[in-house]
């Protein structure tokens, strides 16, 4: 059985653990570096990216997670997790993992009153469309050569991407009961994609 860590410093980590459990995957909260041992994958949840970045740094999680990413370890980040994975971030003054070759804009759609939900076409998981919840969400401004953009809004803005075994989503699959993106990530963990 595969074991996935969910970074549990702040934000909606309980929801990710619940979705993984629905997929019969063992999921454990990660708060300290020694807890990273023995994992098959890592999820960085939604939350406040500056808060998570600060706590990662203070508890020496930034360097070991960056090392895992460089080694080709499977990591999925949602919303704040996308911001933390990105190489370039506009609108943040904290250090990030700089693991994926994407440029990301924080709070790209505006303030909370502009947060929205919409049905999103994601070819990698097929039909039907994925009901995506965007909360003070980032979007992708630029993607490098090795990056596959998995989903775009109708205006062409990228909101999901994959590079190697890393997946970044601007929205929150953990706030819905649709398991397909977590199943997609698990197929990467299993080496099937």
């Amino acid at each position: 059985m595969k074991k996935i860590g969910v970074l549990a410093l702040q934000g909606a980590f309980v929801e990710h653990i619940a979705l993984l459990n629905h997929l019969k995957v063992e999921a454990v909260p990660i708060r300290l570096p020694q807890e990273l041992r023995g994992l098959d994958g890592l999820i960085i949840p939604g939350g406040e990216s500056t808060t998570i970045a600060r706590l990662m740094k203070e508890y020496d999680l930034m360097a070991p997670v960056r090392e895992l990413a460089l080694d080709g370890f499977p990591i999925m980040g949602t919303c704040a997790g996308m911001v933390l994975l990105a190489k370039n971030v506009s609108g943040i003054n904290s250090e990030t993992l700089e693991a994926m070759d994407i440029g990301v804009k924080r709070n790209a759609f505006g303030r909370q009153v502009d947060s929205f939900e919409t049905d999103l076409e994601i070819p990698a998981i097929g039909e039907p469309h994925f009901h995506a919840v965007f909360i003070r969400a980032p979007h992708i401004e630029q993607a490098g050569d090795g990056v596959e953009v998995l989903a775009q809004l109708p205006n062409g803005v990228g909101v999901a991407a994959r590079q190697g075994k890393m997946v970044a989503l601007a929205f929150h699959p953990e706030l819905t009961s649709d398991l397909r993106l977590h199943a997609y990530f698990m197929s990467i963990v299993h080496g099937e994609r």
């Binding site: 934000g11 929801e15 939350g47 909370q112 909360i135 929150h172 706030l175």
Partner: peptide
């Protein structure tokens, strides 16, 4: 969903 979702993102904070 969007309103309660922001509160979810504030959890543990």
């Amino acid at each position: 969903t969007v309103k309660t979702g922001l509160a979810q993102m504030l959890k543990g904070g």
